[in-house]
Amino acid sequence: MKMTISTQSKEFLENLRLYLFSSGKNETEIEEIVGELADHLSEAEAHGKNVDDIIGGTPKAYMEQIASEMSLDLRSWLKYIPVLIIGVFAYDLLGSALRGGIEYSLLTLGGNIFILLLFLSLTVVIFKYVASKKLSKTKEYALFAILGFTPMILFFGLIFLDRYVETPSYKFSSTGNMIAIIVAILAFIVISVWGKTWISIILPLFLFLPEFIMNITDVQEELKLIISGIVVPLCIGIYFFIALKLEKRKDEKKVTH
């Protein structure tokens, strides 16, 4: 027998999954409770009840009730951070390699490494603090905002500092640039395989390929602007739209299979 539930119930379950995932809950536990509720809803609907009868109050209140009984699982979130850092580095390297060669001053290189290490330690400290203390949502968001803005502000500071302070700089040779490009592309492919996602290949492709082709061919300035200003964002938008649709269809299958 196939388990059938109404569109309204499916929608509720999808929202619940998203709510729990963005609250940092464990993925296996999320699938467990969503599956259990799907089971309940299918039986309740067979007896003529609907999702509103089941959850009592508002969906939000019910989701909060469920979330408050599930523990935070920061480890499953932490694993994304090294990937994020490698991704950002690969993106930065590929960008500079394609735009006339990689050049790092000693200050930028040291500064970048310092900021990354600081960001990592700050992440661990803040995540641990949030996980162990019962904080209000506002305080939690404030802490995450500090975590997000600290590296950004430091990176900007570094760019300014680099303009005023002269340090020896190192320019990659053309072979060095080629190697950097290959390493960066490999990094994107590895991330894509690891995360079972196309985004880490498709996004750099959209961002760099048109620019690269335009640079080696003779395209008029005006056409260049149109392509990089309209076509590229449009392609990225269409990609996200299709990806979202596919993801939604996959979720629906998960609930009803």
Binding site: I33, H40, D53, I54, I55, G56, Y62, I66, E69, M70
Partner: peptide
């Protein structure tokens, strides 16, 4: 879950919504 809820209702626990047992079970 569903069976527990049916039993609760058969004993007259109609003041609780069906879904409220799941946070408790968690």
């Amino acid at each position: 879950g569903y069976e527990m809820m049916e039993k609760l209702y058969s004993y007259g626990f109609t003041m609780v919504s069906e879904g409220s047992i799941y946070p408790l079970l968690l």
